[in-house]
Amino acid sequence: MSNHNGNPMLPESFSVKRIKNETDDTFTVELQPSKKVLDLSFEAGQFNMLYIFGVGEIPISISGDPCSTDSLVHTTRVVGTVTKAMRKLHVGDLIGVRGPFGNPWPVEEAKGKDVVLIAGGIGLAPIRPVINYIISNRNKFENVVVLYGTRTPKDILYAKEIKFWEKKHRIQTFVTVDRAIGEWEGNVGVVTKLVARTPFDPKNAIAMACGPEVMMRFTVRELQKRGIANSSIYVSTERNMKCGIGHCGHCQFGAEFVCKDGPVFRYDKIAHLFDVWEV
C-alpha cells in the first residue's frame, strides 16, 4: 500500500464496502480506499493495523485474495473493544488502515510441492489468502490439503466456500471440531489428529500452520512424526503488535519482532523458542 511511502504511523482512510457475519462471534469486513487510488496489493499472511475512530487500533491479518485486490478483506473475531466497535460499523463508515506489514507465507517456495495447510479457529483467516492464491494458480501446486479444526460446527468459518475448495479446486479439506452437538456428520477431535492420515509426501511438501500457540506446538510434533523437515514447516505467531514496524518492541518473541520478522516464521528458525516458558 502507498502508505509505506509516507509516514507508516499514519493511518490511511478506508470505507466499509461490505460487512458480513461469519459465525456467532466472527465477521468479515471488506474495505475500500475512501479518497485516493491506493495500491492494495499484499502477500498472503500479511496483516494491517485497523483503527476505529475514538476506540483504538489492532492488528488483523488480511484474509482476502492476493490475486484480486480491489478491496481489503479482514475476518476477525469479537474479542475486545476495537473488534466490538468494528462489528457495529455500517457500509460507508470510515476506518483507518496502516499496512500491510509482516513476513508472508512461502507461496512461491511451495510451488511444485504438496501443500499442507493447518488452521485452528480464527487461524483460518490468515491461511485463506494462501488458498485463494493456490486456486488462482492451481496447476503450479501438487496435492493440496487443508486441515481445519474449530470449536463446534457452529464455529466453522467460510463454511460455504470450504465446500468449493474440494469440489472445484482439488483442495482436499478436512474439518474437525472439538465438540459436536446435533447433526454434525464430520470429524470430532483435535486438528492435530488429522495430520497422521493426511495424504502428502513429507519429502516434497510444505506445511503452513496458523492457530493458537498450543495447537501449533502439537501440530508441529505431528508433522515431524510424518518426517517433514523443520525447514519445510511454517507457523504464524501472535504477539502484542502496536506499531507494526519493529519500533515499539511489544511483539518480541525471543529476538524476533513478530510484526516484521513474522508473523510467519520458518519453524526451524524459532523452534528453540517454542519450548521456552513465557518467552
Partner: peptide
C-alpha cells in the same frame, strides 16, 4: 477518561 472511554466504547 474512564467516563469518556465508557461512552465511546473503548478501553
Amino acid at each position: 477518561e474512564v467516563c469518556s472511554a465508557l461512552l465511546h466504547g473503548r478501553a
